[in-house]
Amino acid sequence: MSAPTLRWDPDPEVWFVGPTDERPYRTWHPEAVKLVKRLFEVSDDQKDIVQYITAILERIGADTDPDWLPYRLIGWPVLEQIPFVVSYGLVQKHPDLEDYLVARGQGVVEAPIVVETTREDGGTARRAVAYYEDARGLMINVRVLVDFGDDDVVALVDSATRDPKVLAAFLDDVDRFVTGLSLDRGRDR
C-alpha cells in the first residue's frame, strides 16, 4: 500500500494551480505566464506588464516548499492586484497543529474566529481566521485543518493577506476548495 495522497479539483473560473510533482516549476512557470497573459489579454509588446506577471509568478513558484504545504492555488481576478495565493498539502498529525491553526505565538491581535464543519466523508474541517502582526504590519490569515479520519495525516490549507477585503472576497472560494479535497489512501492502486 502506498502513502496517502491529497486530491483536489479547484474551480478553474477562480483558481489556477501552481507547481506540482507532475508539473514542476520549470514546466509550470512558462505555462502560467502564458495563461495569465491570455486571461488578461496582455500581448508580448506590453513588456512591462509581461515582466510584472513573470516576476509575480516566479515569486509564487519559488516560495513553494516541498516539505511543508507544497501546493499553491492562485486566484488573480484583477491584474493590478497582487494574486491571492493559497498553500495546501498533507501533513502528519501532531498536537502542535492546533497552535498552528489558531496562529498561537504569532502575535495574534485578537482571538481567532474558528468554525468547525462536518464533511460529507465524515471527516471535519476546522477553519480559523486570525489577525496577527509580523515585521511588516498587520496580516489576516485563514487556515483550515481537514481531518479525513486517517490515523496519520491531515490536510492543511493556509493563506494570508494584508487586505481583509481580499480575504473576504475569496473566503467562500477557499471553503468550496476545502469541501472538494479528498484523501486517496492508496488502497485502490
Rank of each mutant, 00 (worst) to 15 (best):
S43E: 12
D9E: 13
G61L: 01
I140D: 07
H29R: 14
Y71W: 10
A111S: 11
D151S: 14
D163E: 13
P10D: 06
V50W: 03
A128E: 02
P19S: 09
V114I: 10
S87H: 10
I140K: 08
D121H: 01
G75C: 08
G89F: 07
D172S: 12
V102I: 14
D188N: 13
F84D: 02
V166Q: 15
V86I: 09
E98D: 13
E110D: 13
F16Q: 04
W28Q: 02
R23E: 14
V115E: 14
D151C: 00
D48L: 13
R72F: 05
Q46E: 15
R119V: 01
G186D: 02
Q106L: 15
D65E: 10
T54V: 04
T27W: 10
I74F: 06
I82F: 06
L57N: 01
P30N: 05
K37E: 12
E110S: 14
W68N: 12
L39R: 15
D48M: 10
S182L: 00
G180H: 03
R104D: 11
I74Q: 04
M139F: 09
E58Q: 12
P12G: 07
R23L: 14
E120W: 01
K34P: 00
D134P: 03
V78I: 13
D45E: 14
T161R: 09
R59S: 07
L145V: 10
V153Q: 03
A32N: 00
F177R: 02
L167W: 02
V142E: 15
D11H: 03
V129C: 02
E110M: 08
R189E: 15
R162G: 12
P30C: 02
S159I: 05
N141P: 06
V142A: 15
A135F: 11
E110H: 11
D158E: 12
D9P: 00
D11L: 07
V109P: 04
P83Q: 06
V78K: 13
F148N: 01
A111V: 08
G123H: 03
F177N: 02
E58F: 08
I82H: 09
A111I: 03
E116W: 03
E13T: 15
G89T: 04
L73A: 04
V17I: 12
G18C: 00
L167Y: 01
L79H: 07
L35N: 01
R126N: 05
A168D: 14
P70I: 00
V33R: 04
V102D: 00
Y71F: 14
R176F: 02
D173R: 08
D173I: 04
P83F: 06
R59I: 00
P66S: 02
L171V: 09
F16W: 09
Y132W: 14
R119N: 06
D48P: 01
D175K: 11
L79F: 08
Y52S: 08
K37Q: 15
T161S: 12
P95L: 03
F177A: 04
D150K: 05
L90F: 07
L39V: 10
V108F: 01
L39I: 09
L181H: 01
D158P: 06
P24V: 02
V174P: 07
P70V: 05
D147C: 06
D65I: 07
D99L: 12
Y88P: 01
D147E: 07
V78F: 13
I113T: 15
V115D: 12
E133G: 10
T54K: 11
A130K: 06
D134K: 07
W28K: 03
